[in-house]
Structure formats: C-alpha cells, structure tokens
Simulated scan of single mutants.
Amino acid sequence: MPVNVFSRQPDRKSFLIYAVLLFVIEVLIARYAPSGFIRGFVGDVLVVLLLFCMARSVVPVMNSKGHLINRLCHTPWLALAVLLFAFTIEFGQYWGLVDKLGLGGNRLARIVIGSHFDPLDLLAFFVGYLILIGIYWKRH
C-alpha cells in the first residue's frame, strides 16, 4: 500500500516522512542559518512539529480494527503533551538540567537539551502548538 503523505488521515509512515523532512530542515537551519529570526525562532517552532511527527510515527492512533485508541494519541492531546515536554526542557535549561545530570561536558547533550533559557523559545513552542491545532481543526 503506498504512503499517502498528503491525505486527510495520514498514517504512521506519513508522519515518519514528515519527521525526517523536518529533521533535515532543522539540521540545515542549525548548520547554515545565521543567528536571528530563522535560527532563533523558526527552528524552535519547527521542533514542536518535529516532536509531534516523531511521536505520531511511533504511536499508533488506531488499532487493527480501525478503532481509536488511547485518547492521549489524538492530535490535540498529543500536541499538548509535546508542548508541555518542550516547556519542561526549556525550564530545565533555566535550572541547569544539563549540568545537574552531569552532562555539562557532553557537546551533544548541550545541543539536544540546551543550556540557555530563553523565554522567547516558550513563545515559539506555543506557536508550533497553535500550528498543530490549526491543522487539526482545518482537517476536521
């Protein structure tokens, strides 16, 4: 069965494709975009979309009989869970989570978890959440 990436009811494979594309965009932004709006804000908006797509590609929303499962996996709830996760990581940066975990010398941990709290990141995450909710409501 072919993957229908642009269907109104995308499947897990479609979300995996979205996640890979968003990851590539994030890497390109991190690698080539100068500091400023694209790197500092758009990248953070996209990270919420990326996390959502990663979660949807791993967690099934319907069982083999086509019935909806686990309410948390429904788009609005999963989007909210991703937003709260992003907020948690950002506040972890405020409290020095990387250093408290003993990963301060690990470059990858400092990149993935981050080490500098920025309240503007919270706004960017919320914008990403609003995009997810907007797509959901437009679809339904």
Rank of each mutant, 00 (worst) to 15 (best):
P2C: 01
V5W: 08
S7G: 15
S7E: 11
R8E: 10
R8N: 10
Q9N: 14
P10W: 11
P10L: 11
F15Y: 15
L16E: 01
I17S: 04
I17V: 15
Y18G: 08
V20L: 12
L21K: 06
V24G: 07
V27M: 12
V27S: 04
A30V: 00
A30H: 00
R39K: 13
G40M: 03
F41C: 02
V42E: 08
G43E: 05
D44M: 06
D44I: 08
V45Q: 04
L46T: 06
V47W: 09
V48I: 12
L49E: 06
C53V: 03
M54T: 10
S57M: 06
S57L: 11
V59L: 15
M62Y: 13
S64N: 04
G66N: 09
H67E: 11
H67C: 00
N70A: 07
N70F: 14
L72D: 02
A79L: 00
A81E: 00
V82E: 00
L83C: 01
F85G: 02
A86K: 01
A86M: 07
A86P: 04
T88A: 15
E90L: 05
Q93M: 13
Q93N: 13
Y94G: 02
Y94N: 01
L97Y: 08
L97A: 14
L101R: 12
N106C: 09
L108F: 15
R110L: 07
R110K: 13
I111H: 06
I113K: 12
D118K: 06
L120G: 03
F125S: 00
G128P: 07
L130W: 08
L132D: 02
G134S: 08
H140C: 10
